[in-house]
């Protein structure tokens, strides 16, 4: 019996090191909650831009087309960038606190792979969104953000906590669903980047960091 336990412990050790060496698991749930709050803040700030078009007859004939003047475009762009940067900074701060407790480092080859693999689809999506806005295809911005963000998370999920995969799939499905209800894009964006992040972050915090 003692012998058996020894071998089981060895296998457990092997599994743990394989996991720890290939995945960055110190991502804090609190960063998810912070990102969600940033997104809800962003939605409330650009809400008036969508509000004027919600339910109007032009919207229904072609919900993709929503012509914003350059000032409105700038507002949308600046809000998006500010939202991303603040969410990113919060993520780094909370994760940094967590690495202090888990004795992990904030930058190593696993983190680099995580950043690269999440970054490629993310940057591609961001470039596409800027073009959509230039072409006045404003209605497509929200679903495209959600779809590309979902794909980015899926692609990065191999290098971090496995639960990220489910968040990615949820964002992707929500984005695809939004294609059918374009006029509610801003609401879907708020659900995807706000609500889902908060739920995910809270679950992760509850599961791994509560103690």
């Amino acid at each position: 019996m003692k012998e058996e336990q020894k071998h089981l412990d060895t296998l457990q050790d092997i599994k743990q090191i394989m996991d720890r060496s290939s995945r960055f698991i110190s991502l804090s749930g609190l960063s998810g909650i912070a990102a969600g709050l940033c997104a809800l803040g962003a939605v409330s700030y650009v809400w008036p831009l969508w509000n004027i078009s919600l339910g109007s007859s032009i919207e229904e004939s072609n919900p993709v087309l929503l012509i914003l003047d350059s000032q409105q475009k700038a507002r949308l762009l600046v809000t998006g960038i500010t939202c991303f940067i603040s969410a990113f900074i919060f993520a780094v701060i909370f994760t940094w606190f967590r690495t202090k407790k888990t004795y992990a480092s904030l930058w190593n080859s696993t983190v680099r792979r995580l950043v690269i693999n999440t970054g490629i689809p993310f940057v591609a999506g961001a470039i596409l969104v800027v073009y959509l806005m230039n072409w006045n295809l404003t209605g497509l911005i929200a679903p495209v953000c959600l779809i590309f963000y979902g794909l980015a998370l899926l692609s990065g999920s191999k290098y971090t906590v496995s639960e990220i995969r489910w968040l990615g799939i949820s964002e992707l499905l929500l984005g695809l669903l939004t294609l059918q209800f374009l006029q509610y894009g801003i609401i879907a964006w708020g659900i995807g980047f706000g609500l889902l992040h908060i739920i995910y972050g809270a679950l992760m915090w509850w599961k791994y960091e509560r103690a």
Binding site: T10, D13, I14, K15, I17, M18, S21, S22, Y103, A104, S105, N108, S109
Partner: peptide
């Protein structure tokens, strides 16, 4: 065993990463 587990699932691992 720890070293082998780490190099098994990564293309390459450096000294400091193994130490950590």
């Amino acid at each position: 065993l720890g070293i082998m587990s780490a190099v098994m699932v990564n293309d390459e691992v450096n000294f400091n990463e193994l130490k950590e």
